[in-house]
Design a protein around this nucleic acid. Structure first.
Lengths: 128, 128
DNA sequence: TATTGACTTTGAGCGCGCTCCAAGATGTAG
DNA sequence: CTACATCTTGGAGCGCGCTCAAAGTCAATA
């Protein structure tokens, strides 16, 4: 997380105005750090800034927003699950295609380059 | 995948100029569809357009590029694994926080709202 | 014939999440 | 005292991946 990003997050309300040293430089408390860690983790999981803003806003409102906050987290957890499923599909497809390339490379090795294009086609045809 | 996206992909060289009907409208062959399916799957796994362009380019060059293509796929497979790991971490954190919210909501239910903020803090402190 | 409606093109515009620039204040080392 | 590094600010700029606007062509239907 760069300094630029920290200031950006403060600007857009993801973090409350943070404490300053006497010279005006920002000093992040441990609570700030914990919160930033959470934000970082959610961003890494592709939570949109908008949603994080919403969550931050609710958090500042306090007690009464627990249910809504939980719903927000549950929703994002569901999208994470969907993302993992997509990634897994792609991963499987790549495993298949990579194995196919290895086969093709073997054939080149033993001198039958004329079959390569055909193999490539069949790879495309069956890739799913 | 929208028509806009299909045309965009053609513009940037992800797919070769596709066949046309007599009236000039695009007609996608089954080979086109298979390739588009692959592109779609890789995009869903966050492969950058640039990388897909590179792969497409190699594919058009044919046989001799097998190794480089495989490397490209292997690299992306590795980034998929990293992404899954990140998502899993976020998922776990959310599981923890959601459980915590449920506890908090229970307390509200039995009438001890004064402990909520404290719980919230401890949640932040231990969230990891 | 007139009117849809689906396609075509070029090129511009947009939303996201940063990322950087320019100018200025402050602190540290030589 | 002079450099230099490091922070401060507001605002502009950027890379990505679409997404859309405008104007035109063509086929089918009322």
């Amino acid at each position: 997380m760069t300094a630029h990003t920290l200031r950006y997050y403060e600007r857009v309300g993801l973090i409350q105005p943070v404490g300053r040293a006497r010279n005006g430089h920002r000093r992040y408390s441990e609570a700030d750090e914990a919160w930033l860690h959470f934000l970082h983790c959610m961003r890494a999981a592709n939570m949109p800034i908008r949603d994080m803003q919403r969550y931050a806003e609710l958090r500042e409102k306090g007690d009464a927003t627990s249910l809504e906050r939980r719903k927000l987290l549950e929703d994002h957890q569901a999208t994470i699950e969907a993302q993992i499923a997509e990634l897994q599909k792609a991963h499987d497809l790549l495993t298949y295609k990579i194995a196919n390339y290895k086969k093709i490379e073997e054939r080149i090795g033993v001198g039958r380059p004329q079959l390569i294009e055909q193999e490539e086609e069949s790879q495309l045809a069956t890739a799913n």
